[in-house]
Design a binder for these strands. Structure first.
Lengths: 112, 112
DNA sequence: TAAATGTTTCAATTATTATTGAAAAATGGA
DNA sequence: TCCATTTTTCAATAATAATTGAAACATTTA
């Protein structure tokens, strides 16, 4: 993961509304949530929500898919794991300072 | 760790200069670096560096201590671990989705 | 105390980001 | 096709953050 992408990902999460959005998506798991449902759960106005979802999407933190009239958003767990990996790697100048374990969450919904 | 503190910590890291500063401090390990040395390593002008160090310090990501004429800055590994823990916890609605391992780095320099 | 070194503060400018409401697309059903 | 629903776009405003250079402050050595 490149530094630029990391800054983008961190900036995407470093905002009240977007952190709230991301958390409800993380809690929702691989099933995801429709945009309107996110608006209900977080109290963020639709236009503002759309703006923030675009930011999160652009940062690779969430993905979306059309489902009928609804647009379903899901947290992008693989990007989250890459982000955590970046922050933990290079730690203490290469001298391993403790057992580092990277993945903290499932990556994707498994195909049936 | 509270949401507000998490946003502050993420915002502190979500910026080119500050991420660079934090990384050199992480790589330097518990010994830390003097402000001027950080300026040399990152190419950030002193006044700008001071501004960013204050941001990082306020977010709890770095600590400082006077040492003669120098001010030594060190990465705050415990806050970093708390941050990682926050992002990994609450994942997938409480259903444990994979083994979660929190600490990725030593917390502090051990007392002699 | 005076001079040199290292760091921080201040004020001004520039740039970026968040929010709101209204209008416009896109989709599905009658 | 027409209507209702869901989401996104747009433009305007308000708020926040980054950078610069000069000056001020703090610490050590002569």
């Amino acid at each position: 993961m490149e530094t630029k992408a990391v800054v983008t990902a961190l900036a995407a999460l470093a905002q009240d509304s977007r952190l709230a959005i991301f958390r409800v998506l993380v809690q929702a798991g691989p099933t995801g949530l429709a945009a309107g449902r996110i608006s209900e759960l977080t109290g963020i106005a639709p236009s503002s929500l759309s703006f923030h979802l675009k930011e999160l999407s652009h940062a690779g933190m969430v993905s979306s898919q059309q489902a009928g009239r609804f647009v379903i958003y899901t947290a992008n767990f693989s990007t989250m794991n890459a982000l955590l990996g970046f922050l933990t790697e290079n730690c203490c100048g290469g001298n391993p300072c403790s057992p580092v374990c990277s993945p903290a969450c499932v990556t994707e919904k498994e195909p049936t």
